[in-house]
Simulated scan of single mutants.
Amino acid sequence: MKVTFLGTSGAVPTTVRNPSGLLVEREGDRLLFDCGEGTQRQMMRYGTGFDIEHIFLTHMHGDHIFGLPGLTQTWDFQDREKPLAIHAPTGTRSRVEQLLSATGQSPSYPIRVTQVSAGDVVLDCEEYEVRAIQNNHRTNAVGYALVEDDRKGEFDREKAEKELGIPPGPKYSKLHDGTAIEHDGRTIQPEEVVGSPRTGRRLVYTGDTRPTDGIVDASTDADLLVHDGTFGKEHRERALNTAHSTAREAAQVADDAGVKRLALTHISTRYTGRVAELESEAAERFDGTLFVADDGMQVTVPYPDSDREFAIERLD
């Protein structure tokens, strides 16, 4: 799973930070979370690809949606035919539709706008699902959790072949799929050669929010939590008044949830050149892997049982 940060600024862009956008690539599926102004150019710049069927909006503030008209129009110019689904919080469908038709023209390909509430399974795929989660902002808003299904346990090929005398072939597949087989006059149960199910990955993207119990619950043991970290502790009152989080508060959520890694995003322009302060404050509450996300940063999230390492790459 690769996570590319397309936009990591707060409400106002800077010369190095675009408004909010996050692209997740999982086994060939590309999912876009939020679409701030200039998102399509960021996608080109960082080579993420444009083959997207689902866009997940956390809320309708401009820095999270103003990239939609341009991106959908570009797809129209490219003669897109594939349907697009845009998921947005309950009560916002008409506003999304008005934004898409702001130029007076509608794309020639089908666009479906769905409304979601915390607790909804927004996207249900064969190996994973995307759920809307509770957050707390100044408007109708949700976060999202991408949760993979458990995977099959590892197949002990050596035991099957050498101890049980089962030659490689269709019987291996049946056992791995959970079906008992007959071999040399005895019944072989799957658990004799197949280990326990292996945990899938969990990615949580909060959008703009105060810390909430719902985020803690949704982020339990998450492999990566991408949390609003707009302010430092010096602006805690402003965080309260604007329904954002400080870096320290985001770190407390990460600690309470037992996440493996925390990425702070939606960084206020006040901290241009000072993001080390946010990391330092967060480190006081969370001792796992921690970083302030930058535009063009791409992280690779391995399976929990994988020998591969969590990796951070800068694409520019």
Rank of each mutant, 00 (worst) to 15 (best):
R210Q: 06
D217A: 15
V204E: 04
R274W: 03
T206H: 00
V259Q: 09
T230K: 00
A250W: 07
P190W: 05
A257L: 11
R261I: 09
T179F: 11
R248P: 08
D156Q: 08
R236M: 05
F231S: 03
F155A: 01
F231Y: 10
I181C: 07
V147T: 15
K260C: 10
R157Y: 14
A239C: 03
Q252A: 09
V194H: 04
R202Q: 12
E237F: 09
G200T: 09
T139F: 06
H244N: 13
A251S: 11
V194M: 00
D208E: 09
S219I: 02
T220N: 05
D221G: 12
V259D: 09
K174D: 14
K233P: 10
V216G: 04
K152C: 11
L175Y: 03
L225R: 05
A257E: 10
T272Y: 13
G200M: 06
L224S: 00
T179H: 11
K152Y: 12
E182I: 06
D221V: 11
K159N: 06
T199E: 15
D223M: 04
H176R: 13
F155C: 01
Y144A: 03
L225D: 07
A239N: 04
Y271L: 06
R270G: 07
N140E: 15
A160R: 01
L146K: 07
V226R: 02
H176A: 10
R274A: 01
P170N: 03
D213L: 13
H235Q: 14
I188W: 00
K260R: 15
E148R: 11
N241R: 12
E154P: 11
E192Y: 06
A239L: 05
D156R: 10
R198K: 04
D150H: 14
R186D: 01
V253I: 10
K174L: 15
I215S: 01
V194W: 03
V253W: 09
E249Q: 13
I181Y: 06
G143L: 11
E249V: 08
R270S: 08
R186C: 05
T212V: 01
A254C: 05
Y172N: 03
R274P: 03
T230C: 02
R248D: 14
A276V: 07
R151C: 05
L264I: 09
V142C: 05
K171L: 13
P170S: 03
V147I: 15
D223Y: 04
V147C: 12
T230D: 00
D221H: 13
R198G: 00
G195T: 04
V147E: 15
L203K: 08
Q252S: 09
A254N: 04
H266F: 08
I166Y: 09
D149V: 12
A145D: 11
D228P: 11
H266L: 12
I267Q: 06
T220W: 04
H235D: 14
R202T: 12
G273W: 05
A145F: 10
R151N: 07
T209G: 10
